[in-house]
Design a protein around this nucleic acid. Structure first.
Length: 573
RNA sequence: GGACCUGUGGUGCAGCUCGGAGUGCACGCCGGCCUGUCAAGCCGGAGGUCGCGGGUUCAAAUCCCGUCAGGUCCGCCA
């Protein structure tokens, strides 16, 4: 039907006869003797010249036959990749007429997202969406090649799975044959892939759709796609190596540039230096510890287990009301207060402008400036509080004051390793797992599990890109005795463990290899690499924040007969 | 569950503080003119439940209350 693609016609094709198919992007008519038609397909746009009039409208689907020719001298269009040539002596065949589109099929048209989604089939024609979905496909393809090359076997796991009362809320699927019973859609293939390890598939992966019935965000949809992988007889270093290979290959395929080796950082260093477990390393300021400076301070505001500071380069020009706003923000984030110091210069001496400036000793003033590295023009923010609070509050302010859109380069990947095994003590006095209860404790710390559980590190790790968590994984527990100790620490009784995870623990009784794995979000990776701030821009048919689909109208009520078939009655609201 | 922002011809906005006739801008659309344009140009035209409901008022796009939809964030996402 066609001889090539619109965007690929070039100077080398001059003289050849072509037939191109696509959509009418624009037409420019010059009376009854001459008309230009810009023809668009997925590859781009080429100008077609018609000697006469044409009865075409925007977005008509047409086939244009003609001869490629060099444009007349001075008529080239340097802003168009095909701008040196045009299709001449055209005959146009209308394959399909079209109503005027609801919005311009061009990138520069900014359109309300719900309008775009309602007419997604039109939106998808725009170069942005074409590029984004193709970038995503290139990334996925590279991931598959990387995993295959490393000896991994792609295996599908069920979409209809068993309810597990743990973690994210699950989508329920009623069973027709077992009226009153339900499957759930998997929030991740976690347990299935561990069963595959017991089954002897020592290197498994899957481009897996995962579903979680939790509230949506710019970086979260009900359904999302992960590279899910698991391997047996491996160390944490092995897993990080496998995943790094896939991620770096994907990034190279998507952007053309291969990132450098991904650096590693311990969880405690991430908290200490950036106040978060997903640090954005594009921002070059770090939190600074002022504990030594104020160790014996008379200043009551700084009498706290931890005194942390954040230097804000050039921040001294902030107005008093802007600073008041920062103080309020810090309080909203959980700090008791926020001290600020505007750094200035007076006759060669560095001065501090702050309500607290006068109560600081000379040594404290010097220490604050020296330790933070502040120079005139900077602003220094100080939070004194419990260590975790001081770090996270300043870490959040760091991002809010200096952050950039996630998709804006450069791309800074980092492995955050040695997550704590437990997050905190729950209301029942038992620690709460930071990852999932099958995470292997760090071998150096395992003896403290009963005596000092919150100090126990785990062999769990996250991959972070520009402040977004791409994914997480861990070495899993494969030994019944260690699993029993973790369950015990968590306050999960033997009976409880049996009823909730029985089919996994019993599988482990039949010969479980040491294993570990990882899963990272392909939507998120693709979005960042595409320069987008929302994963909706790399998903063909996403949902809105309320979980609706403006195109199909989903979700909808089911006909009464369908409900009756499933044995379901809708409760009155 | 909560906070904040947004809603005005097909699209994007202005108008809203300080109430006075659906007023304006750009794009698109329709018609006419036009033989080298390329976001073509020129002339003319059509197109509106100011998200919806209620209240205040002589009078509401504008003020108040409620509600719906969309977005960002918190909670949530082991």
């Amino acid at each position: 039907m066609r001889t090539g693609l619109c965007g690929e016609v070039g100077i080398g094709d001059v003289g050849s006869r072509v037939r191109l198919c696509g959509w009418v992007a624009r037409r420019r008519e010059h009376g009854e003797h001459l008309a230009f038609v810009d023809l668009r397909d997925r590859s781009g746009i080429v100008q077609c010249v018609v000697d006469g009039t044409v009865d075409l409208r925007s977005e008509y689907v047409v086939a244009v036959a003609g001869v490629v020719r060099r444009r007349p001298e001075g008529m080239e269009n340097p802003s168009l990749p095909t701008g040196e040539v045009e299709i001449g002596d055209c005959t146009v065949e209308v394959l399909s007429a079209a109503e005027p589109p609801p919005f311009l099929v061009e990138d520069r048209a900014e359109v309300d997202e719900v309008v775009r989604l309602r007419h997604r089939y039109v939106d998808l024609r725009r170069p942005r969406m074409q590029a984004n979905l193709r970038l995503r496909a290139a990334a996925v393809s590279a991931i598959r090649r990387a995993m295959d090359r490393q000896g991994f076997c792609e295996i599908e796991t069920p979409l209809l799975w068993s309810p597990t009362p743990e973690g994210a809320r699950e989508f329920a699927v009623p069973s027709r044959l077992h009226t009153g019973d339900f499957y759930v859609l998997p929030q991740s293939p976690q347990i299935a892939k561990q069963l595959l390890m017991v089954g002897g598939f020592d290197r498994y992966y899957q481009i897996a759709r995962c579903l979680r019935d939790e509230d949506l965000r710019a970086d979260r949809q009900f359904e999302f796609t992960q590279l899910d992988m698991e391997a047996s007889f491996v160390t944490q270093d092995d897993v990080l190596g496998f995943v790094s290979e896939a991620v770096l290959d994907a990034a190279e395929a998507a952007t053309g540039a291969r990132p450098q080796e991904i650096e590693r950082m311990s969880w405690s260093a991430a908290i200490d230096r950036y106040g978060t477990d997903k640090p954005d390393l594009r921002i070059d300021t770090e939190l600074v510890d002022l504990g030594d400076v104020f160790a014996s301070s008379e200043v009551r505001a700084f009498a706290a287990p931890s005194v942390k500071a954040l230097r804000v380069p050039g921040g001294s020009q902030k107005s008093r009301s802007a600073l008041d706003g920062l103080v309020e923000r810090a309080k909203a984030l959980g700090a008791k207060g926020l001290a600020w110091f505007r750094v200035a210069e007076d006759e060669g001496a560095t001065t501090l402008d702050s309500p607290l400036a006068r109560v600081l000793s000379d040594a404290e003033r010097d220490g604050l400036v020296r330790t933070t590295g502040a120079v005139p023009g900077d602003l220094v923010l100080v939070v004194a509080d419990e260590h975790r609070v001081a770090c996270t509050v300043l870490g959040q302010l760091r991002v809010e004051l200096a952050g950039k859109p996630v998709g804006e380069g450069p791309y800074r990947y980092v492995w955050v390793v040695e997550f704590p095994l437990f997050e905190a003590l729950g209301a029942d006095g038992h620690p709460v797992p930071a990852h999932h209860p099958f995470t292997m404790p760090h071998p150096d710390d395992i003896d403290r599990m009963e005596t000092d559980p919150l100090s126990v590190r785990s062999q769990a790790y996250d991959l972070v890109l520009n402040g977004w968590e791409l994914g997480s994984g861990s070495i899993r527990i494969h030994r019944a005795d260690i699993q029993a100790r973790v369950f015990h620490a968590l306050g999960i009784s033997d009976e409880d463990a049996e009823s909730r995870f029985g089919f996994l623990t019993s599988a482990f009784r039949y010969g479980a290899p040491p294993h570990g794995g990882f899963a990272f979000g392909i939507d998120r990776l693709a979005a960042v690499l595409a320069g987008e701030e929302s994963i909706r821009e790399v998903i063909a048919f996403p949902k809105t924040q309320s979980g609706a689909d403006p195109l199909t109208g989903a979700p909808k009520a089911l006909p009464a007969a369908a409900l009756a078939d499933l044995g379901i009655r809708i409760a009155a609201k």
